[in-house]
Design a protein around this nucleic acid. Structure first.
Lengths: 217, 217
DNA sequence: CCTACCGATCGGTAGG
DNA sequence: CCTACCGATCGGTAGG
């Protein structure tokens, strides 16, 4: 309502229409997304409230709904943001392949140590998604499926071509499972879990096992 | 209040007081616990309601509170029940050690395939516990800590004595993390994840790595 | 174990 | 982006 300016992206002809009504809708949406990510991380989706999110941004909960329509939509938007945890970068942006991707996973685990909020958001939301009628269920199903493919592809490049496909996929799911499970232990006990080196050791171990072809009982 | 008797364990003299008012307090508590486990599994703790639990048992939510005092207490009681998932048997009962315990883990993973409810309850509640002020936070911190010790002890028996303690604990945390993470992927995609054989392969891999002493970078 | 009730909170809508 | 409001739900208590 009041005469806000705040130009951010779109270049407008000087005195075009009403001369920038708000502090840029896009920027406000970003602030809401950041707050929402944090609240969902700390409380979970069901237990996190629009009021708490709104308070952090300095508006009412109706204001938040004005920007995202519903709580479900807000969650979806949070999950689809690309800037999140390193492991998420796996999907959107350009990604390394082969050994470089495996190294990227280790780097991600290391970097995640300084991103508790994001780690916790994904840990909490991914598991919460298995509950009834959770709006993020399909998102995480697809995400795990995509991750498995990417990691399996990377493994393929660093092991003998004789290793069968299903072993690559299984190894990939094990690596992803291990990273996710470690995050939970680390969140509960940050001092006794060393995510970075554990992930590194585990990945090296999986690769070594695949190379040795000793994956049977 | 009213004259309850409810003989279940304690042997009472035949015509002692009022002669069986209810269907045994202990039995009712059990029925509530079973319902609560199921509801918490399907909805999580915060989102699961006393009303839904009460409905399954056929009473009002006030009735449930009569037996457990508060929702928090009910959760605690659910978590402390011993009959749950195999991996929980790890704490209470007599347990195998060494290779037999590792085999027990594999059997547990296999058996869990037919206990979706229990698996989901532990998966959901353990991760939900990392959120703010969650009543089960200490429970799961202790649980992970205890599991790490038990698995590390088992590993010690099957690898060379030269393997340092901290590597055993790290390997233990990796095994536990992997099992937990796999459960989430399996819950979302039961057909593409083979928990039993994956766990078996992973444990064998960890042991092989420890024996080979190649756990470094 | 129920009826009755309370205060609190929640997501969403109207309507500007 | 707010005020004002709604219906729904929730955990817990009183008081039997």
């Amino acid at each position: 309502m009041s005469a806000n300016t705040g130009s951010t992206a779109k270049s407008l002809a000087p005195a075009d229409k009403v001369r920038k009504p708000h502090a840029s809708t896009a920027a406000t949406r970003e602030r809401i997304l950041t707050a929402a990510m944090s609240v969902f991380a700390n409380r979970g989706y069901n237990n996190g409230s629009l009021l708490e999110i709104a308070d952090r941004v300095g508006m009412t909960h109706a204001g938040v709904l004005h920007y995202f329509g519903s709580k479900d939509n807000l969650l979806t938007a949070v999950l689809e943001r690309r800037d999140e945890s390193g492991i998420d970068t796996l999907e959107g942006h350009r990604l390394p392949t082969g050994g470089a991707l495996l190294q990227h996973l280790v780097n991600t685990a290391r970097g995640n140590t300084e991103r508790v909020g994001i780690v916790q958001a994904y840990a909490v939301l991914s598991v919460e998604s298995v509950t009834e009628n959770h709006p993020a269920q399909q998102f995480f199903r697809d995400r795990f499926s995509g991750l498995r493919t990417i990691v399996a592809d990377a493994l393929r490049e660093v092991v003998p071509p004789t290793v069968p496909e299903h072993e690559l996929v299984r190894a990939a799911s094990l690596i992803i499972a291990m990273m996710d499970g470690l995050q939970v232990q680390w969140l509960l006990d940050p001092d006794t879990i060393d995510m970075a080196s554990s992930v590194e050791i585990a990945i090296n171990g999986v690769v070594a096992q695949l190379r040795a072809g000793t994956t049977a009982t």
